[in-house]
Design a binder for these strands. Sequence first.
DNA 1: CTATAATATTAGACTCAGTCTAATAATTGA
DNA 2: TCAATTATTAGACTGAGTCTAATATTATAG
Lengths: 186, 186
Amino acid sequence: MVASAGRPKRVSRELLQEAAFELFQHRGYRNTTVEHIARTAGFSRATFFNTFSSKAELFWLETDELVAALKKHLDAALADPAPQQLRDVLLNFASGLESHRIPWALQNYRLLEAADDLTASGASRALELNRAFASYLHDTEPGDAVVLHARAAATTAMLVSALLGWIDAGVGRGPFDEHLDRALIH
Amino acid sequence: MVASAGRPKRVSRELLQEAAFELFQHRGYRNTTVEHIARTAGFSRATFFNTFSSKAELFWLETDELVAALKKHLDAALADPAPQQLRDVLLNFASGLESHRIPWALQNYRLLEAADDLTASGASRALELNRAFASYLHDTEPGDAVVLHARAAATTAMLVSALLGWIDAGVGRGPFDEHLDRALIH
DNA sequence: CTATAATATTAGACTCAGTCTAATAATTGA
DNA sequence: TCAATTATTAGACTGAGTCTAATATTATAG
């Protein structure tokens, strides 16, 4: 790839994220301003908003990768000629989730309560998952739309509940798929 | 009740709400400023924030009454010596929900997508319900905490899903409890 | 009737997120 | 050296929410 014309980028999502998480740990999400994050990383506020569309987007960076991986997993499962039940696809994905690879945002999910923009952006991630589940169910076991959407919503809720419960369980918790197996009723 | 001392209140939640919903219909939630709402109702911005803690709180006024009614219903059910299953308590409550008494906010729930503060405040209402359901389950059928919280979360999700689906069904939809009965998978 | 205590309303200043525009800086290639 | 291109920046703006201090309206005590 030829070096493209124009002034080279100095900023990266990672640089800003690193500065931000340090500040969040230290002073909390609300007490950390975008100006503060940007200056700590060596940039201006304007550059921050060139890189992220919001303070919350930065917060969810790693979680978004996890969500994307799960959606990819669902797509792969759907490509199978005889797709598994959604439940089993999720358990399969869960078995690959290592304790040490949980996004910082999820480990610190209690921060959500303190900030409106975090609650909203967290909810929008859950809704994204919900759409993916509804779509999977639609393709694998069509039927009454009311029931289908209810099942998708229930699955999303149980997954999130299991994940947060597992995180809360702290060190010594077993593997995630065992928690999820108990939480995913029917 | 003796008339209390001091300058009498002129503002009321209802006055502001009436002005607000007119403006929301007309110009949308985002394009309606708090200043605009307050002035339309004949007050100042400062008075608005004396009355409501946020623009979003106003949006959810009627919904909050519905949530409070449901929580009361749960408490009443719990007072019974042999409490019903949560599912049946909810179906019972749903049968009393008339089509014409659906909060404006729920009828217009698609507005949520357009505004972060609405998503967040909507989510916080759902979480409030979720806590109430978890508490009900805790008192009626104790057991594994992971399973209990998963069931509460699933119930919340299915209830919301059913409610929004019912609203979307528009005129000609049957009674809500029929929808809910299908959505609440055991 | 007047003063005062109590409460409502208000203006206005402030912080912060997010948007936008216009200026400037650093690079490539001609 | 000049133009094209892209990155970074300052700075102004809007709007939500917080806060303080001033003013208005009432009841009641004297």
